[in-house]
Nucleic acid binder design. Sequence first.
DNA 1: GCCAACGTTGGC
DNA 2: GCCAACGTTGGC
Length: 161
Amino acid sequence: MQHWLMKTEPDTFGIDDLARVKVEPWTGVRNYQARNFMRDQMKVGDRVLFYHSNATPPGVAGLAVVKRTGVVDATQFEPSSPYYDPGSKRDDPRWICVDVEFVEKLPRLIALDELRANPALDGMVLLQKGSRLSVQPVSAAHYKAVLAMAKKAAPKAKAAR
DNA sequence: GCCAACGTTGGC
DNA sequence: GCCAACGTTGGC
């Protein structure tokens, strides 16, 4: 089983939205590397860190699981969609995604700052400079380390001096 | 709103 | 196939 991190903007679709709908097709990814991870490597049952980007603060908000693979992203054929791709053919769709299922909302958000400060997460794709991939692999050790952080209280803010 | 980093497009 | 111009991502 592999582990992943998937980014989403909570203003558009966050962990509370996933909790409500339970299962969501991960449409709208238009980056080939991200698509390839979903299309070629994700397996049903893979665990997912659900990450809030463009948020205050950004961070890991919850957990999800891959429910179904080989899902054709319907938005590529919808001319009114911002994700419409006129170059994609119905009999050979370019954008394949997965269904993501809600597992849990973490007891607290693990902020990006806190992730960066944890030496156990050195090398995590998310933390690499310039990393923008919205679907990315996470090692089992890094996944575990994030879960461990969720169980502990948030570190206190540094006192002003 | 800014901007660094990265990806894509298209002329040549 | 190169690469400049442009668009997007996402933290700040």
